[in-house]
């Protein structure tokens, strides 16, 4: 590629990167401003910094409580996904058992059926039949085992050399032991990928916890912030600042996790997981 053909790539990419990053800049700066600006010439403020927006939103939606709820919701999903996902992924990749092809068919079904179609029956099932409305368990259950994670585990386990497993079996190790002491240590990168992919689901989820939590003390931050945006914002002195402060609190845990672990988040993993 010659030098003359590359400069426009940088111009294109830089312009796109500004479009993609600007709303984040606006969000973070606005979250710490006494009066977030709406005019372009005040885009680089030098004064008026404050933590007041966080205090203001905290007075309305209990920021820490909501963050804790988001964390419990996410941790529950992660626990279910890692425990049962590892077991299922290992079985699908390395074991020959009855029902294996049925499991594959079920996984395809899960990838194809949109959650929104299941919204009404799941709502009836979980709130009426199981009585789990307004509980953490009811929030976690529909996301309990992330199918994408099962795909990722299966692929990583398949890539391990066959001899390793045969040797462990000849030594008389049980399958559970092989999984724990041989297979899992070999797929640490898969674990990080799965944690990242799974984390963003429940952490960012709005619709489901919104449907089943009426009790505000149980609502994750995505739900309480949305309620604040659609109802309460009018009655706050600086609603824009408070909204941006809430948005920052919800966005940052994920952004930081991603920046720390982004090398585990590669195109091939995601593509493979989506394509199955």
């Amino acid at each position: 590629m010659t030098r003359t053909t590359t400069w426009w790539r940088y111009v294109l990419l830089a312009a796109a990167a500004i479009v993609f990053a600007f709303p984040f800049y606006f969000m973070v700066v606005g979250a710490f401003q006494e009066n977030p600006t709406n005019t372009p010439d005040e885009m680089f403020p030098i004064s008026g910094w404050t933590f007041g927006n966080f205090t203001a939103i905290n007075a309305r939606i209990d920021l820490l409580g909501s963050l804790a709820n988001s964390l419990i919701f996410t941790a529950g999903v992660l626990l279910g996904t890692v425990t049962f996902g590892l077991l299922a992924g290992y079985a699908l990749a390395r074991l020959d058992f009855r029902g294996k092809s049925a499991t594959w068919v079920l996984m395809m079904l899960v990838q194809m059926v949109p959650f929104q179609l299941l919204m009404i029956p799941l709502y009836v099932q979980i709130t009426r039949s199981y009585g789990l409305g307004d509980t953490y368990l009811g929030m976690i259950l529909p996301f309990g085992i992330n199918t994408t994670a099962v795909f990722i585990f299966t692929q990583f386990f398949k890539a391990l050399p066959k001899e390793m497993f045969e040797a462990a079996r000849i030594d008389g190790a049980s399958e559970l032991r092989i999984l724990r002491s041989v297979a899992v240590p070999m797929v640490r990168p898969a674990l990080v990928t799965v944690v990242l992919v799974t984390f963003i689901g429940p952490w960012n989820e709005f619709l489901w916890p919104f449907l089943i939590t009426k009790d505000t003390s149980l609502q994750p931050l995505a739900v309480s912030l949305a309620n604040y945006i659609s109802n309460a914002a009018q009655s706050t002195a600086n609603p824009n600042g408070a909204i941006l402060a809430g948005a920052t609190a919800l966005a940052f845990p994920v952004v930081i996790l991603f920046l720390l672990f982004q090398r585990y988040f590669t195109a091939s993993d995601i593509g493979a997981a989506v394509k199955g």
């Binding site: 984040f24 963003i200 941006l244 966005a251 994920v254 991603f258």
Partner: peptide
């Protein structure tokens, strides 16, 4: 830069776009 909006909660970003 391109990937971060995909990772971020829609509720956060909707708040920003609304303003």
């Amino acid at each position: 830069a391109f990937y971060v909006p995909y990772l971020t909660a829609s509720v956060s970003l909707v708040g920003v776009w609304m303003l």
